[in-house]
Write a protein that binds this DNA or RNA. Structure first.
Length: 308
DNA sequence: AAGACGAAAGTGGTTGA
DNA sequence: TCAACAACTTTCGTCTT
């Protein structure tokens, strides 16, 4: 951990920008995502009320959901207090302790396995620590509510990760989750929907803009193209072209058009593969873009300039 | 030969009776 | 529970570069 990046390895620009929330360093000149596994300097938990605030702030060891017992541990009463209970009380006490033991060991065993899997998948996807924490939290809640029963552990892990990514506005596609976890994407979608519904987690529809930097980087497009794509996207959103459409398709179409305008043409197939949609979808989206935004003329002009 | 285009049929999920 | 429906995919033939 000795070398800190100050220069873009691609274009040697020093014009880098850091996105703390997403844990990414992006080169402003060429759009390359240089480092996306930064240490997250923010707190990795959230405080919803005073009680949680006083419990979670660091006084002592940090509490973490990525450890199966959150770095803490609880047991139903140790010996010592029993003598104060009557016969009935004693029985109840032993019963409770037995159940506490059974339940907690079952849950803990599950969590140990699941969190290891979660870590594996999260690092495969190069997700920032904050997202890993969030998904671990979601998973823990799911286990405690018995939502894993009848579902494979791995699929719930994948669902939790998917949900956490979207909450943190670093959405990954279901295809990426499928590749990383080896779970069918339909299954991931199902458990994702089930878990979020049961836990009452509200998730906004993902914003196409969040996909742009990653796709642009994968396509090796310049920063200008990237920001042009974002502009197009915003115009599209204002014309209400985006509602009800798959966000990846919209992002892909904007990038495709932006690349055309900036003379960095990529084929529809290239863009489609990266974005995980088909060429047809890109065509449809981009046709809508041209129509509503009256870009047809300027595109045509660009194209004829290119062929000259 | 490769890419772009668009029509037509198929798929999986949501919605509303 | 079922049918209608929108978005998206698959497939394929045609046109353009």
């Amino acid at each position: 951990m000795s070398s800190s990046i100050k220069q873009c390895p691609e274009c040697h620009s020093v014009n880098l920008t850091i996105n703390q929330e997403k844990g990414e360093v992006i080169c402003r000149d060429c759009g390359l995502v240089i480092e996306d596994r930064l240490v997250d300097f923010g707190q990795e938990w959230r405080e919803f009320d005073h009680d949680q605030a006083s419990k979670r702030r660091r006084t002592g060891a940090p509490m973490t959901y990525t450890k199966y017992d959150r770095g803490l541990g609880t047991d139903v009463g140790q010996k010592g207090d029993i003598y104060r209970l009557g016969m009935k009380g004693k029985n109840k006490f032993f019963r409770l302790r037995k159940w506490q033991y059974r339940i907690s060991t079952a849950i803990e065993r599950n969590l140990k396995l699941a969190l290891a899997e979660l870590k594996r998948v999260a690092s495969f996807l190069k997700l920032p620590k904050s997202v890993e924490e969030e998904s671990a939290r979601i998973y823990t809640l799911a286990v405690q509510r018995g939502l894993v029963r009848g579902r494979s552990m791995e699929s719930v892990v994948a669902g939790a990760l998917y949900a956490a990514c979207r909450r943190h506005e670093v959405p990954r596609t279901l295809d990426e989750l499928e590749e990383a976890s080896g779970i069918d994407k339909k299954e991931i979608g199902r458990t994702y929907r089930f878990v979020t519904r049961e836990l009452g987690i509200r998730i906004l529809p993902s914003n196409p803009v969040d996909y742009i930097p990653r796709f642009a980087s994968a396509l090796k497009l310049s920063a200008e193209t990237q920001s042009r794509a974002v502009e197009l996207l915003e115009m599209a959103q204002q014309s209400e072209l985006t509602s009800g459409r798959g966000p990846t398709g919209i992002a892909a179409a904007s990038l495709y058009v932006a690349a055309l305008i900036n003379n960095e043409k990529r084929t529809q197939r290239e863009v489609a593969d990266i974005a995980g949609v088909t060429e047809v979808t890109i065509r449809n989206r981009y046709k809508e873009l041209l129509k509503k935004l009256n870009f047809k003329d300027s595109i045509k002009k660009k194209l004829s300039e290119m062929s000259r």
